[in-house]
């Protein structure tokens, strides 16, 4: 009985999606065709939960706009970093993706991150435009009609040299890296800022700054590391005493050997050993908790 009900809901949802897709652009934004890039999560007829959510959202948006064919632009969350002079806008995009835009002077940045983790970063200034496409399989860089693709599976090739040459005189990339340097300098850890800084690691690596990912990883890990305190000594009390006492004994043997035949000096070696030894012994006692 329950199965029959579920099947019934699924088919109704499919019908609503089909109607929505045929009536308006808003519905198209939620449908599988609305997000062609990277195979982002989208409404599938077989998946009743996605279909229902998609259908409800589509019906709502179509009703709100009141006209078919108009694109619904979702409300953005706007933040600003004054120190780095960047204004960020974050908004959900089609297919479960997140779209982040940023503007700093002439530089316009748009980063789209799919639910699968694939991302597209577009940097543009009035005279320059660079696009980075990062997927699980490859990283592509496009500038001025030229695209260079670096495949993960491919062996080391000269493609990375081509990427460096392609990006060498890019004003947009230079400006983007300067913005990120300012964001790191201002210690801005907002989600939008971190999304930019993460892309800076990729851009830095592709332009030959091989230390960029490590530096950025350290920047990101810094707040977590600041809460870490050492719980104990590097060496415990006993190990420390053992090491010192063995060293003292070796010193004593060396001392005795160096003054062989002079009993007075050998006694002095023994006194020194006793003083050292007692010092280590009382250190051990106080270290163990008996603080005399």
């Amino acid at each position: 009985m329950k199965n029959r009900e579920r099947r019934g809901v699924g088919s109704i949802a499919l019908l609503v999606v089909a109607i929505g897709a045929s009536t308006g652009g808003a519905a198209r934004a939620e449908s599988a065709h609305g997000a062609p890039a990277f195979g982002a999560v989208s409404c599938r007829a077989g998946d009743s939960s996605y279909a229902e959510i998609g259908a409800r959202a589509s019906a709502k948006e179509t009703g709100r706009t009141g006209q078919s064919g108009s694109e619904v632009r979702r409300a953005a969350q706007v933040t600003r970093s004054d120190k780095a002079d960047v204004t960020f806008e974050i908004r959900p995009a089609a297919g479960g993706a997140i779209e982040l835009s940023g503007r700093s002077g002439e530089l316009q940045v748009k980063k789209t991150v799919q639910s699968s983790g694939d991302s597209v970063l577009e940097l543009s200034t009035p005279h320059d435009r660079v696009t980075f496409t990062v997927t699980g399989q490859s990283t592509s860089v496009t500038r001025g009609g030229t695209t260079v693709e670096l495949r993960r599976s491919a062996a080391a090739s000269d493609e990375s040299d081509r990427v460096r040459r392609l990006l060498a005189d890019s004003q947009a990339l230079l400006r983007f890296r300067a913005v990120n340097a300012a964001l790191i300098e201002s210690d801005d850890r907002s989600p939008a800022s971190l999304a930019f800084i993460t892309s800076d690691a990729v851009a830095g690596l592709l332009t030959g700054d091989v230390g960029a990912p490590r530096r950025i990883a350290q920047f990101m890990a810094r707040p977590g590391q600041s809460n870490v305190r050492r719980a104990g000594m590097v060496m415990d009390c006993y190990s420390l005493m053992e090491t010192r006492m063995v060293d003292a004994w070796n010193d004593y043997m060396g001392c005795v050997a160096s003054v062989l035949g002079y009993s007075y000096f050998q006694d002095l070696c023994a006194y020194r050993w006793v003083v050292q030894n007692e010092s280590y012994w009382f250190n051990f006692i106080s270290c163990s908790g008996f603080n005399f």
């Binding site: 006993y238 006492m245 009382f282």
Partner: peptide
């Protein structure tokens, strides 16, 4: 004081496997 001297003699002269905090 004597224990300090005794431990100081015992530790370097004993084989490493025998040395332990309990023994001290």
């Amino acid at each position: 004081l004597l224990a300090g001297a005794g431990v100081g003699l015992l530790i370097p002269l004993l084989p490493r496997a025998w040395r332990s905090e309990q023994l001290v």
